[in-house]
Design a protein around this nucleic acid. Structure first.
Lengths: 164, 164
DNA sequence: CTTGCTGCAAAAGTTTTGCACACGT
DNA sequence: ACGTGTGCAAAACTTTTGCAGCAAG
C-alpha cells in the first residue's frame, strides 16, 4: 500500500488556508466573463460543495429542490457547465448514458476502482500512475492536462460478499 | 519509449492462428444462450471486424446500410449488447453523450491518449500501467477484470499545430 | 438601466421497447 | 413448429434551446 491511499484522498476541509474559498473562485470566474453570480448559482455551488463524491446533474437538481430552493433543471445544467469551465468540478466518465461530475478544486486528482459486482466505487490516488501518464504524454510530444483512470475489479470467490 | 508503442498495438490479422475466428466465437456464444445467429447479426459483426478503431452505434448502422444491408437501428443496438456480453467488443468511455465501442477479442488491451486541441486519439499499450492496475486491485482485495485509461494532452506552444 | 439569467416547455439526440410478422434451429 | 429476432415507430431519458419576464451589476 505504498502508493495508493484507501481513505478519502482529500476533503476540502483539510486545509482551507491555502485556497481561496471556492465561492470566491466562482465569483471571480464569473466576473471575469461578465456573468452574474445569481442566487441559483450560489445554491447550486453550495450543494456541489456538500457532495463528497461523484454526482449526476439530476441528483444535484433533486437535492437543491429538496432544500426548498426553486431551481429549474435547465439552470442546473447551465451552471454545471460554468463550474466545469471554472475548474471547480470535472466531468468524470463513468457511464456513457449520463454525465457524472466531481469536485476537483483544491483536491488531489482521484481515480476510481469500480467493484463490478456491486457498483461500489473506491477512490484512490496513485502518483506512480501520474508519473507514467506524464511520461507517456511527453513521449508523444504532448503536455499532460488531465487523465481518467478507471479500474474494474471483482470480489474473488469466497470473499463472503457473493451477490447471488 | 520503452513501454509504450505508438503504432497500432495489434491488428487481428497479425496472427489469426491462435484464435478462433471471431465469427465462430460469436456463434458459440449465441448457441450457448439459445440465441440465433441471424443474417443481421452476421453483417453487423462483419462490419465491426472491419473497423480498426473506436466506433459508435450510429456510425455502425450507417456503414451496414451503405453496404446495402437492410438492418434497423434497433437491431444494431441489440447486437452491440450481445457483442459486449460475448467479450468481442468493449464499451469505451470517451464522451458521456454517446457510447463508443472497440473490438477487443484477440487484441492487447489498448488505452488512449487524447490530444485535447484536435480530438486526435493515439492508442497505446503500457504493461507498466497494467501492472500498477493489478497491484491496486489486489491491495483492495479485488481481482482485476478490466480498466480504462484515458490521458488528455495538449500540443505545447510552438509545435506548429496551433488550432487558431 | 443594461445585460445576462431563469423557468418553462418544446426540441434534440441517443438508446430502449412493444408489437406483428419473419426467420433460424 | 417453436421460440427468437426484426423493423417500425413510439417511448424513455438526458441534455439543450428559444422565449418572455426577472434580477444582478
Amino acid at each position: 500500500m505504498a502508493s495508493t491511499m484507501k481513505m478519502n484522498p482529500s476533503t476540502n476541509a483539510d486545509d482551507p488556508s491555502i485556497l481561496l474559498p471556492i465561492c470566491a473562485i466562482f465569483r471571480r470566474f464569473l466576473k471575469k466573463r461578465g456573468l452574474k453570480f445569481t442566487t441559483e448559482r450560489a445554491v447550486i455551488l453550495d450543494t456541489v460543495l456538500s457532495k463528497d463524491s461523484v454526482f449526476e446533474a439530476d441528483q444535484l437538481l433533486a437535492e437543491v429542490q429538496q432544500l426548498g430552493h426553486r431551481v429549474s433543471r435547465a439552470t442546473v445544467y447551465r451552471t454545471i457547465k460554468h463550474l466545469v469551465e471554472a475548474g471547480i468540478i470535472q466531468e468524470v466518465l463513468l457511464d456513457s448514458r449520463q454525465s457524472h461530475y466531481q469536485l476537483i478544486y483544491g483536491r488531489k486528482p482521484t481515480d476510481h476502482l469500480v467493484v463490478a459486482d456491486s457498483g461500489e466505487m473506491i477512490e484512490f490516488y496513485s502518483p506512480e500512475l501520474v508519473a507514467i501518464r506524464d511520461r507517456i504524454c511527453r513521449e508523444h510530444g504532448l503536455q499532460p492536462v488531465g487523465h481518467r483512470f478507471l479500474i474494474y475489479g471483482i470480489r474473488p470467490p469466497g470473499t463472503g460478499q457473493s451477490p447471488d
